[in-house]
Design a protein around this nucleic acid. Sequence first.
DNA 1: CTGAAAGCGCTTACAG
DNA 2: CTGAAAGCGCTTACAG
Lengths: 333, 333
Amino acid sequence: MATLKDVAKLANVDVSTVSRALNNSANVHPETKKRIFAAVKELSYSPNVISRGLKQGKRNTIGIIVPRLTLTVFSDIAQAIEEEARKLGYTTILCHTEDNPKIEKECLNRLRNGFTDGIIIAGTGRNNRLIRDIKASGIPVVQIIRKQDIMISSVVVDSKKCAYDAVNFLYDKGCREIGLINGDTKLMPYQMRYEGYHNALKKLELHETINNNPREENINSLEYGYNYTMELLEINPHLDALLAAVDAQAIGAMRALKERGYTSSDIKLISLMGQTLAGMLETSITAMEFPAFEIGHTAAAILVHDIESDEKDREKPQHFRFAENLIERESTW
Amino acid sequence: MATLKDVAKLANVDVSTVSRALNNSANVHPETKKRIFAAVKELSYSPNVISRGLKQGKRNTIGIIVPRLTLTVFSDIAQAIEEEARKLGYTTILCHTEDNPKIEKECLNRLRNGFTDGIIIAGTGRNNRLIRDIKASGIPVVQIIRKQDIMISSVVVDSKKCAYDAVNFLYDKGCREIGLINGDTKLMPYQMRYEGYHNALKKLELHETINNNPREENINSLEYGYNYTMELLEINPHLDALLAAVDAQAIGAMRALKERGYTSSDIKLISLMGQTLAGMLETSITAMEFPAFEIGHTAAAILVHDIESDEKDREKPQHFRFAENLIERESTW
DNA sequence: CTGAAAGCGCTTACAG
DNA sequence: CTGAAAGCGCTTACAG
């Protein structure tokens, strides 16, 4: 790769002049400029962004930390963040943790060390101190979906209301034995969903069908939904409706129901975090539509805004909460 | 963030000594070492990987360029690459292009300029010259899935055989009117799939049902499969089987078939690039199982190997081709 | 065992 | 309008 020096030599000027010409930060004689650009072209030079960053203390890179990509909203969100970031002149670094706090810690440490100007995270909730540390050291952080720390900006959906509304919707359809497929309630959105579910059932004087046993499978997976459903069917044979925290779980649930011989007129199903997939299935799934792209764009925008603000303006964390809309489909007919 | 200098000052030694102690590249007196580590701890110092890279000409980062993540094998592959890369001490930078050559060009240019030691790409095929350029400038490149340039190392599956075998499988099931849902045949795997399909039909003396009109939707999407299927049904009302290039298309196809009132006893369906999702659907889909994780791991491994080899050993590109295995499921019963 | 110095590729006051 | 110099945070021969 050609460097500034090479260009300078070929154009017969000092590197500083080349630098100025390229960033047109000062007046450079048109003639000189011409020579410089000719040299740039000849050597097909392009500046090393890293060293520029070194000097400017900026890297134009943001880190994304998510549990996993496969079949999750995180793949949509990561895409949205990358899109927005690219527009704003930033590159994105991706890490996934499989919800393993150790891996997460590793990722956080790599990202803080000169790799990124800011971090967007859907975390495990087990590295909150480290995250505060990182923020305190001057690297802005935004939480998405999982708001684990009130002191860190966040972009989420209202999971509590979402579960609450879904229960009421099912009640109006005549369902009385409503089960909840949920994740670890130590994680914020799962706790919120449980609360919404719990409150709605309480008000309606129904009883809960849940399963609090810890599980092996990844929360955001088909298998999780499948196995969880099989267990709920054991726990409550009279089940007439199911809430699934995410689409992947709902799909697994649908499969389990089918294998057990149930149809949607026996057991209705709602996904609490619907992506486009839900609408395209053989039996399309009623879902609270999750605004993945809005969340990704918003998270990227507020992070970059923070990065480009003075440190002192960053004091108060901002919290955004999006609504989800219920879209009725075949799984609740 | 604390720097080497801060640590040096606190430990009362020169920065070079601190550097040596941290990299234990030379003997440092145990006492001094102790003081240094104490200082490191007190300041919670961790080295700036970027500046280290500047000096060493290395960044320990690899770039991944894929069309999109949502509902594609690329999300699995990206995850696998990140996993393997992390083990090998590398971070991954992610870019998606939506199969837009312009965006791809932008991504390639950012990645080459000091961001990455190597690049893994599933490309559009429209920036081959740029990619060769990048490789020539000393940044190793590996193609995945889409082998657009014989001079660049690649990790792919045998898409031709895959389509060929699938047709024969359907033939044995009694199907005679077999349609193909495919992408742009300028892209390598789509061309290969078409060839496999074409050759098999020719040998069996069947005729083709395809649609070559260019389309608006992203190839790797549910809508693409849905609309494509609707069109094939128009073109050939006697269709009794469908091949879909990827899972997302197959799911869209299944939905279209259902809406038109067909079941799997009317029209059988095979996905040529199956992920775990195919097996968990309401009607599980027969698929050529795509080894996404093996591909991701392999791509990362050979890329890092290249990065860490001498330039001269990189001359000859390596090409890996994985097999896919047909797993029969309900969609062909 | 340790310090002083040069350098990675760039930017940016400071002179002139 | 342009060059010389210092510096971003680190590493690594070179002396001693």
